[in-house]
């Protein structure tokens, strides 16, 4: 691999990180909020797929891609609120409900999404941040979708709000000790319902990115498990919104490795390179979860931690 080829791979990985990371980021942020409140919503894959379908349908029927994004968020909000409400009932396991909602969300999306596979909907426009470069590859890699920045801003806001606001404190308290929250007069179920609903909204917006920007069309194989992977990224990011962004970027960059290595002629062993994101996640997960302090970062009320 000579100098310029290394450069091509590097550009492709930066481009891949920017292009592919956004849905992971939104789902991971939504899941972080939900898990911070003490509940796990494994159904976000369903929110992601339904969000993708609703966004595409919304953009197609209204002609406005941003309205589609909003509708996708609302569809996620409804699914999240349903999950939150059902988990409030006695003796209900949130993980089992989450798995049910994963199938429910994707099934709903496939059922109502049929008529929207063929038509072409208006897509979200990118911001050409690579305008300064005469190299078309750099210019292309730096075509950034506004939702990418919304995701980063959201992460910073969540990080700040969880640490510094009264609402953030309440969410963390219900997540760490439901008993103390009740003692403070906080309705644990209401907080969790809201956290799950808002988390669902974010995952729906992540789905909108898939169908309205990259890869940019609605079909039934669109997500191929990205929502599930993003839920795993939350554990990998130790329930920290900022680390969720890093994790999503890393995952996007690693995903671009396989195709870009083949494009410069390193084509042996592409199955291995295509598996790179998962291998990477596994290793960092093992490394990060081994530390003693890692146990303290898990919200105490999670059924994982109990």
């Amino acid at each position: 691999m000579n100098h310029s080829e290394l450069f091509i791979v590097l550009i492709a990985m930066i481009g891949g990180a920017i292009r592919v990371s956004t849905p992971f980021m939104f789902v991971a942020l939504g899941e972080t909020l939900t898990e911070k409140s003490g509940r796990i919503n494994l159904g976000l894959e369903g929110n992601l797929v339904l969000g993708a379908m609703v966004a595409y349908a919304g953009s197609y029927t209204t002609g406005s891609a941003w309205l589609g994004v909003l509708m996708a968020g609302c569809s996620g909000l409804v699914l999240g609120a349903m999950h939150g409400y059902i988990c409030k009932l006695p003796k209900v396991n949130d993980i089992a409900v989450g798995i049910a909602f994963m199938s429910f969300g994707t099934g709903l999306a496939f059922f109502f999404g049929k008529p929207y596979i063929q038509p072409l909907a208006p897509k979200l426009q990118a911001i050409p941040l690579g305008f300064w470069s005469s190299d078309p590859n750099i210019a292309q890699a730096l075509q950034v979708n506004p939702l990418f920045f919304v995701g980063i801003a959201l992460a910073i806001f969540m990080w700040w709000a969880l640490a510094n606001t009264r609402w953030g404190l309440i969410v963390r308290m219900t997540g760490d000790s439901a008993a103390s929250a009740r003692a403070m007069g906080v309705s644990v179920d209401l907080v969790r319902l809201l956290a799950t609903a808002v988390g669902g909204f974010m995952a729906g917006v992540g789905g909108a990115f898939l169908s309205l920007y990259y890869p940019g069309s609605w079909n039934e194989g669109l997500s191929s498990g990205q929502g599930l992977m993003a839920v795993a990224l939350v554990i990998f990011a130790r329930w920290d919104p900022i680390k969720c962004v890093y994790a999503a970027l890393l995952f996007g960059a690693a995903g671009a490795l396989g195709p870009s290595l083949q494009s410069i002629g390193i084509s042996q062993g592409y199955y291995f390179f295509n598996a790179a994101p998962y291998i990477l996640t596994l290793f960092i997960m093992i490394a990060s979860a081994r530390s003693k302090s890692a146990a303290r970062e898990v919200p105490g009320e999670l059924s994982l931690a109990k």
Partner: peptide, 24 residues
């Protein structure tokens, strides 16, 4: 120039592969 994705239907990697080919 060929890029194998390894799966019959994987939209995100297919888009990445098309981008990588055009970049090349």
């Amino acid at each position: 120039q060929v890029i194998f994705t390894g799966e019959w239907s994987l939209p995100v990697r297919e888009a990445e592969a098309a981008n990588a080919l055009i970049d090349a």
